[in-house]
Simulated scan of single mutants.
Amino acid sequence: MANLSRYDPLNLARIDPFGDIDDLFKGFFVRPALFEGQPQMQIKMDVKENDNAYTVHADIPGVKKEDIHVSIEGNQVSISAETRMEKEEKEGEKVLRSERYSGKVSRSFTLAHDVDETKAQAKYNDGVLELTLPKKAATSARKLAIQ
């Protein structure tokens, strides 16, 4: 079986045969590490439509409802949430480990019709945000008479 090697477009060793330049940038383009027990926040959504409204179910577990913000501008809807977690393990009088995590996540999407923000409703229960977004009544186009 042939050995597979990963192609690295940022590998400067093919330019510099001695590899000195490659060592300079090693680890520079690496994503930050995710530590054990650190939550990775994402907002996962289901969007449904009927004749009168949109219904959105967004999974935002472990967040207080006071830390969730929803904004509506025309047909653009934005959901953002903040979470804080503190964990401290003690043994006797000494603190052996103390961890803190703070994060913010947001999600925006565009709907086909404008939303009537005066009639929109939001409920948060068991980690699921439910939005009921009524469609704005279509305004009829008015023709102007040319004089």
Results as ranks from 00 to 15, higher is better:
A2S: 09
N3H: 05
L4S: 05
Y7W: 02
L12T: 03
A13I: 01
I15R: 08
I15S: 09
D16M: 10
F18T: 14
G19C: 08
D20I: 14
I21V: 15
D22N: 06
L24K: 14
F25T: 09
K26E: 12
K26Q: 07
G27A: 00
G27K: 01
R31L: 13
R31S: 14
P32A: 06
A33N: 08
L34N: 11
P39S: 03
P39A: 00
Q40K: 07
M41I: 02
I43Y: 05
K44V: 10
K44A: 11
D46Y: 04
V47T: 12
V47P: 04
V47L: 13
D51L: 10
N52K: 13
A53Y: 13
T55F: 12
H57F: 13
H57S: 12
D59Y: 10
D59M: 06
D59T: 11
G62T: 04
V63E: 01
V70K: 00
I72K: 02
E73V: 11
E73S: 12
G74S: 04
N75L: 00
Q76M: 07
S78T: 15
S80F: 03
S80M: 05
A81Q: 01
T83L: 04
R84D: 06
M85Y: 08
K87C: 03
E88A: 10
E89T: 15
E89Y: 15
K90E: 07
K90S: 10
E93V: 03
K94E: 14
L96F: 08
R97E: 13
S102G: 06
S102C: 00
K104G: 07
K104T: 13
V105A: 11
V105M: 09
V105L: 09
R107V: 13
T110Y: 08
T110A: 07
A112F: 05
A112N: 14
D114C: 02
D114H: 07
E117V: 11
E117H: 12
K119S: 10
A122R: 11
Y124G: 07
V128P: 04
L131E: 06
T132N: 10
T132C: 02
T132G: 06
L133C: 04
P134C: 15
A137K: 15
A138S: 08
S140Q: 15
S140G: 14
S140R: 15
S140D: 13
A141H: 12
K143D: 13
A145Q: 10
A145V: 13
A145K: 11
I146E: 14
I146D: 10
Q147I: 05
